[in-house]
């Protein structure tokens, strides 16, 4: 069977709906249904789920903490677990926590759906959607450099520990101070990179707003039209 390729505009359209609704909904049931639909679209667009899951599992622990904090401080709903009269897990806390999990899940999924298209295609799509080129360019640069920033923070953190500083066992106040120092090399190298990038771009004759002609044009195909028609209908179903 031939693999069906979707137009990046279709993906942008789906992601737009998914993320708007994810922000609008607040009850966990709707968010749950929305996540299922998101996963459905993820399958259609062939999102690499194993990578997504790995990223998601890392932050799952944070949510567990959130659920417990919610339960302790919001005295609503029936207690599921109680220790010495303190409600550790309540129904309302659990529901809100699950709401967060689904919401963040949808946002991550949206990112993953977009990244199944190449940057070149997405930029082309934004341009054909008449989004100002500057915005597209900023997004493209941001996405491209994000992994580098992450790497640099990690490197700086390693270098700091190699100084003999036991970051994990510092008192909270000292730890925050020490972590603030991590950002100094990062900010400096970012400024430096930005300067060099701007110089490189300009020296290659690039100007924002200059008239460009292009050979490539994205064309919506049948599967795209069908997909875009289905999306609003499905999304309506998720509402309570």
């Amino acid at each position: 069977m031939k693999k069906i390729e979707f137009d990046p505009r279709t993906k942008i359209f789906v992601v737009f709906f998914l993320s708007t609704l994810a922000v609008m909904f607040s009850d966990w049931m709707s968010l749950f249904r929305l996540s299922l639909i998101g996963i459905g679209f993820g399958l259609v667009f062939r999102v690499p789920f194993h990578l997504l899951l790995r990223r998601f599992s890392k932050i799952l622990l944070v949510f567990l903490g959130l659920i417990i904090v919610q339960s302790i401080f919001i005295h609503e709903g029936e207690a599921l677990i109680e220790v010495f009269g303190i409600q550790i897990l309540t129904v309302v806390g659990l529901q809100r926590g699950l709401g967060y999990v689904f919401r963040v899940g949808i946002v991550l999924l949206s990112g993953a759906i977009l990244s199944t298209s190449s940057m070149r295609d997405l930029l082309q799509a934004l341009q054909q959607l008449k989004v100002p080129y500057v915005i597209g360019l900023m997004v493209a640069i941001g996405v491209k450099f994000l992994p580098i920033f992450v790497q640099e923070v990690q490197d700086a953190f390693v270098a700091m520990q190699l100084r003999g500083i036991d970051v994990k066992h510092l008192r909270m106040k000292r730890r925050i101070q020490v972590i603030a120092y991590l950002f100094i090399p990062l900010i400096l190298s970012t400024l430096d990179k930005a300067e060099r990038l701007a110089a490189t771009i300009e020296s290659r004759g690039f100007r924002i707003g200059a008239k460009r002609s292009q050979y490539r044009k994205l064309q919506l195909k049948r599967q795209d039209v069908i997909c875009m028609m289905i999306v609003p209908m499905i999304m309506l179903l998720t509402q309570n």
């Binding site: 700086a156 270098a159 520990q161 100084r163 003999g164 036991d166 970051v167 400096l188 190298s189």
Partner: peptide, 21 residues
């Protein structure tokens, strides 16, 4: 732990900018 190695062994990175805070 990384900090324990750091107290025994000093490491000069190929690019020194990343170890100045």
């Amino acid at each position: 732990a990384l900090f324990e190695v750091g107290r025994k062994v000093g490491y000069l990175f190929q690019n020194p900018s990343c170890q100045i805070f």
